[in-house]
Amino acid sequence: MDDLLGEQWLSAAVDLLVRVVEAAGALIIFVGAMVAFVRFVINGVRHRRTESFVPVRLGLGRFLALGLEFQLASDILRTAIAPTLREIAELAAVAAIRTALNFFLSREIKEERAELARRQGGAPDPADPGAAVSAEPSR
């Protein structure tokens, strides 16, 4: 009886954690979409040039990648307690799809960042403090 209550408590606790992590991932994606939308509107009104939207896409891409990582974490948590073979197979499929999405999204972000730096003569994107690209050769 104690084992059953312990399993039920653990299952309920993990279910709560799954919901919290899923909500965090959804919130990250939502906030990223709202930030990108506001930046899109501002850039559209001020600049009206296609290349002014590249930093907006890069920012949204970073939010999407982070949100997908949280969603994958929730899927892993969901199968943490006595998973069936079907649940493991579903997790593997979902993980593969999300990993592929994240890979291609990261690659596109990297390519866009390089293109943006090339257009700006090697200057880093001011909206991205983590993308400091040095224009000087390393010594």
Rank of each mutant, 00 (worst) to 15 (best):
L101F: 14
E22W: 03
R118T: 12
L66H: 01
T99M: 06
L4A: 12
A36Q: 11
G6Y: 01
L72H: 01
V38I: 14
V14K: 08
R46P: 12
A135K: 14
G25W: 01
A114H: 12
D3T: 12
R118H: 10
Q71E: 02
L17P: 02
A92C: 00
L4C: 07
A100H: 07
L27C: 07
V20Q: 05
E90L: 15
V41F: 10
L85W: 13
D2W: 01
L5N: 13
L16D: 09
R46K: 13
A123D: 05
E115M: 06
M1G: 10
L60R: 07
R39K: 14
N43L: 10
E51P: 03
T50K: 08
F104K: 06
R57P: 00
V94R: 03
D128K: 01
Q120C: 09
F53D: 09
F40G: 12
A93D: 08
F70A: 03
A117D: 15
V94Q: 04
P124I: 05
E108C: 05
G130D: 14
E108H: 10
I81H: 10
E87A: 06
L91G: 05
A127N: 15
V31D: 08
R118W: 12
M1S: 10
A36P: 14
L17R: 08
R57G: 12
H47A: 11
D128A: 13
I76S: 06
I97Q: 09
F70W: 05
A65C: 06
A65H: 02
V21L: 03
A117S: 15
V133E: 07
A65Y: 00
V35T: 13
F104I: 10
A96P: 04
A73Q: 02
G6D: 11
L77W: 04
A33L: 14
V14S: 02
E111S: 08
V21D: 04
I109K: 02
R62D: 07
K110S: 06
R139C: 02
T79H: 01
D75S: 00
L85G: 15
I109L: 09
Q120T: 15
N43P: 13
L66M: 09
L85F: 09
A95K: 01
L17Q: 09
A95W: 03
L116E: 14
R48H: 00
G121L: 00
G6A: 09
S138A: 13
I29R: 00
L27V: 07
R57H: 04
G61C: 08
P129M: 09
V35Y: 01
V31P: 06
R48C: 06
A100L: 11
S74K: 01
A92Y: 00
P55Q: 11
I76W: 11
R19P: 02
R49I: 13
A13W: 05
P137W: 00
L64E: 03
H47I: 07
R39L: 14
L91A: 00
A89N: 11
R113S: 15
D15T: 12
R139P: 05
G67Q: 04
R62I: 06
E112R: 12
S11F: 01
G122T: 15
R48W: 00
M1P: 05
I109R: 05
D2P: 02
V54E: 13
E22H: 02
V31R: 07
A65S: 06
V38Q: 08
S138I: 14
L105N: 15
L72G: 01
D3I: 14
D15Q: 12
L68V: 06
G67T: 08
N43S: 15
